[in-house]
Amino acid sequence: MAVGSAAAGSAGGRRPQPQLDLQFLRRFGKIQAILFPRWSSQNVLMFLSLLGIALLEQLVIYQVGLIPSQYYGVLGSKDFSGFKTLTTIAVILIVLNSTLKSLDQFICNLMYVSWRKTLTEYLHGYYFQGQVYYTLNVLREDIDNPDQRISQDVERFCRQLSSMASKLIISPFALGYYTYQ
């Protein structure tokens, strides 16, 4: 019954569309302050580790990209020992790249779990403070299962943020480096 009334209420009234505005940036900043409370926190250390891994991964990818130009030099001279050396280097770089990608994903998953725990505990702390729990569950009929909604929304947010973290970290560095080149 609460779902039907919530659906009817949202269909009748206009809801504002999400926007990338100053209010969004303020809210996102507050969430970041919760996820990264101090420089020595576990989340900051994982984020810095991810930054190092992502930069190293990009360096290895760049080196892999240089292999074809080195290969044509070896191919033209028909140097078999140079070919073996180049193949060995390529295999090492490919194994190193796959290891770094796995480590990147592992750290992103660790950050997801840590962020989810931190944010859920923070929001549930506010939810169970004072009369909020009672007000939302008894007096507000338009909101059903607020504690479950908090958990699900936090899970989705943290999953998306952790999946984007590596790409967001490396993009400015890659852009700057390739612009410099």
Rank of each mutant, 00 (worst) to 15 (best):
L66W: 03
Q70L: 15
G65F: 02
F80Q: 13
L59Y: 03
S77H: 11
S49K: 10
G73D: 13
D79I: 07
L55V: 08
L48T: 08
S77N: 09
K78N: 14
S81Y: 10
F83I: 08
F83G: 06
Q58Y: 04
L51D: 01
S77W: 03
L59F: 10
L75C: 08
P68T: 08
S81D: 14
L51K: 06
Q70W: 11
Q70R: 12
A54Y: 02
I61V: 07
G82Y: 06
L50I: 05
G76M: 14
Q58C: 05
D79C: 09
I67C: 04
I53K: 03
L55A: 03
Y62S: 06
V60I: 15
L50Y: 00
L55W: 02
A54L: 04
L75Y: 12
S81L: 13
E57Y: 02
Y72N: 09
K78F: 11
G52F: 05
F80S: 13
G82H: 04
Y72K: 11
Q58N: 15
F80L: 11
K84F: 12
T85K: 15
D79A: 10
L55N: 09
A54W: 00
I67Q: 02
K78T: 10
Q63I: 02
G65V: 00
G65K: 05
K78I: 06
I67F: 04
K84E: 12
G82R: 02
E57L: 13
L48I: 13
I67L: 15
K78D: 14
G65I: 03
Y72C: 10
Y62L: 07
V60A: 03
G73Q: 14
L66C: 09
T85R: 14
S69K: 11
F83W: 13
G82V: 07
S81E: 09
G76K: 13
D79K: 07
F80G: 04
E57T: 07
G52E: 07
G52M: 10
G52S: 08
Q70N: 09
I61D: 03
L56T: 07
G52Y: 01
V60L: 01
F80T: 11
Q58T: 05
K78Y: 08
L51E: 01
L56M: 10
L55E: 04
Y72P: 00
G65H: 04
Q70I: 05
Q63D: 07
P68Y: 03
K84Y: 06
L50M: 04
V74F: 10
V64W: 02
I61R: 08
A54V: 02
E57I: 00
L66S: 07
L75M: 11
Y62W: 12
I61Q: 05
